[in-house]
Design a protein around this nucleic acid. Structure first.
Length: 491
RNA sequence: GGUUCCUUCGUCUAGUGGUUAGGACGUGAGAUUCUCAUUCUUAAAACAGGGGUUCGACUCCCCUAGGAACUGCCA
């Protein structure tokens, strides 16, 4: 039997790290078992649905290179893969449950439910949730209400009739048996909403069965509803798939990862210059490991080596610092050409390069890449790092030209000397130049850094830059000399 | 409040009854270096607590504590 797994997000917001992790695990599990990876869009919440979210889902999958074997835009034998296009199916099955006595119409108003919730909150009773008000309506009452509703152009919701006693066991590949008393399950959850759309519980169970999903890999937050789903499968007379609940991804404070912890959406990570390779590698490593030493994995390797047994049960904290480290590692693994190509969009966005880039701009970037590759954590770092290659520099505050142990006088003198030297600089090798500067520093009784600091600030406008000799060659003789002269003129 | 799940360095983890409890990020120190970064060396840092079981428990069982998730006509 080939495994069939699915990633089934709800397009009600940007794809976040938790979702990405679920997608990744499903994808790798499918690949590693020679199975099929299905994408299903669970857009049954019409209130929160947005086209932008759906687009973001595709963009994210695309960015990460997670191709689905079946799903929207691709099709497959079990379509449609967008739940809003399957409404008829859910309605049919929901009514089938009513006929079989496993579900019932509920006519309770939002207001009544609201009041009920309010009351329960205050009473702090152990049992919360729906009071099963409509569960035992007599056939006459039910028909009357139904007519009343339909005459008014309304539809009642359909609720699942949970067993009042007993317990239900869900088998989980990771956690083993998870048992819940039926009386502890949220009482008679809604299956079909009044707008005719199914709730998650109904749609999910029906689709997973109809699409012949063999394994459900989803976040641990679904554990409490697991037994409910098992009950639903049973009511339909179906065999539940195998479950594997994935540990959650938390923020530093141990709470579910959210905006206040930092970036959480794939889009933010993409835009600030994290490589998909790094995201894939790092995100997979929170909650999963291969052994005690290997931590670098390409997507292709993970497709082979991933296994459910190595998943950790405990939730994991998302460590932004470690992600940065991974990203830096991956940036350094890129070929110079590849890195340059990935960097260019950031320069364009910062207004430093035109779009499309000119040959000259490309050449400057190509020259800069060897100097910055060791220094980048994120691709977006590039614009501030080398803006002086594209734009003029202005030293507003001349004191930043002064090295740590220098004075305005000594600095002015050094700059004048440097201004006189820059011409010769370009005729010599870096080694020769360094020798000259060292000799000059010694003559002045200072360190070479005391000469290089004013030079660096004069040429790049900042006290932190790539190695200054190489940088000057990138900037060119004209501009470099001019900048040094101008800095000297400041005193 | 109730239900369910979880618990090895600050963080991610290895470990499956006998180990000096290993690695990685981060942090400290040092080296390299023109700044920054990279790189290298090195240090500090953990089995939540209490009971059992056992010749022997991080590993098995129980209890406690702590944490999390769920408790919607959201998923």
């Amino acid at each position: 039997m080939t495994t069939r797994v699915r990633y089934a997000p709800s397009p009600t917001g940007l794809q976040h790290i938790g979702g990405v992790r679920t997608a990744l695990f499903n994808y790798f599990f499918a690949k590693s078992t020679g199975g099929r990876f299905i994408l299903r869009v669970e857009d049954t919440d019409r209130e929160r649905y947005s086209d932008e979210s759906l687009q973001d889902l595709f963009d994210t999958m695309n960015w990460l290179g997670l191709d689905w074997d079946e799903g929207p835009e691709k099709g497959g034998a079990y379509g449609p893969y967008i739940q809003s296009e399957r409404s008829e199916i859910y309605r049919r099955y929901a009514h089938k449950l009513v006929e079989k006595g496993y579900a019932y119409y509920c006519f309770c108003s939002e207001e009544r439910l609201e009041a009920l919730r309010e009351e329960q909150k205050n009473s702090k009773s152990d049992h919360q949730g729906y009071d099963r008000h409509c569960r035992d309506l007599s056939p006459e009452e039910q028909n009357a209400k139904l007519k009343e509703f339909r005459d008014a152009g309304k539809e009642p919701v359909i609720r699942f009739k949970l067993p009042l006693s007993g317990a239900t066991v869900m088998e989980d590949l990771l956690f083993g048996k998870i048992t819940r008393k039926n009386s502890d399950i949220s009482p008679d959850p809604v299956l079909l909403k009044s707008d005719g759309f199914p709730t998650y519980h109904l749609a999910n169970v029906i689709d997973d069965h109809l699409m012949e999903i063999t394994h459900i890999l989803r976040a641990q937050e679904w554990i409490p509803t697991g037994p409910l789903h098992v009950l639903l499968y049973r009511a339909f007379g179906w065999e539940p798939p195998k479950y594997c609940h994935l540990p959650m991804v938390m923020g530093k404070d141990g709470q579910k990862l959210s905006k206040r912890h930092g970036s959480t959406s794939a889009r933010e990570f993409r835009e600030s210059g994290y490589l998909p390779e790094a995201i894939i590698n790092y995100v997979t490593m929170v909650g999963w490991s291969y052994d005690d030493k290997t931590e670098f994995f390409t997507k292709e390797e993970l497709e082979k080596v991933f296994s459910l047994e190595k998943i950790n049960k405990a939730p994991g904290v998302f460590d932004y610092k470690k992600l940065d480290w991974f990203n830096g590692q991956y940036i350094r693994k890129l070929s110079p050409e590849d890195l340059a190509a990935r960097l260019m969009p950031y320069l364009q966005k910062a207004g430093l390069c035109s779009d499309p880039a000119t040959e000259k701009e490309k050449a400057i970037l190509a020259g800069a890449v060897p100097l910055v590759r060791e220094r980048l954590k994120k691709l977006s770092d590039i614009s501030e790092m080398i803006r002086f290659l594209f734009k003029g520099v202005s030293v507003d505050d001349k004191t930043i030209l002064i090295p740590k142990n220098g004075t305005p006088e000594t600095t002015a003198d050094i700059l004048r000397w440097l201004a006189g030297y820059t011409e010769a600089f370009f005729d010599r090798s870096d080694e020769e130049n360094e020798a000259v500067l060292r000799a000059e520093a010694e003559k002045r009784g200072v360190k070479i850094g005391d000469l290089l600091h004013p030079l660096r600030v004069a040429v790049t406008g900042t006290p932190v830059s790539p190695p200054i000799f190489e940088t000057m060659r990138l900037i060119g003789k004209e501009t470099s000399s001019e900048r040094v002269r101008r800095a000297a003129g400041l005193f």
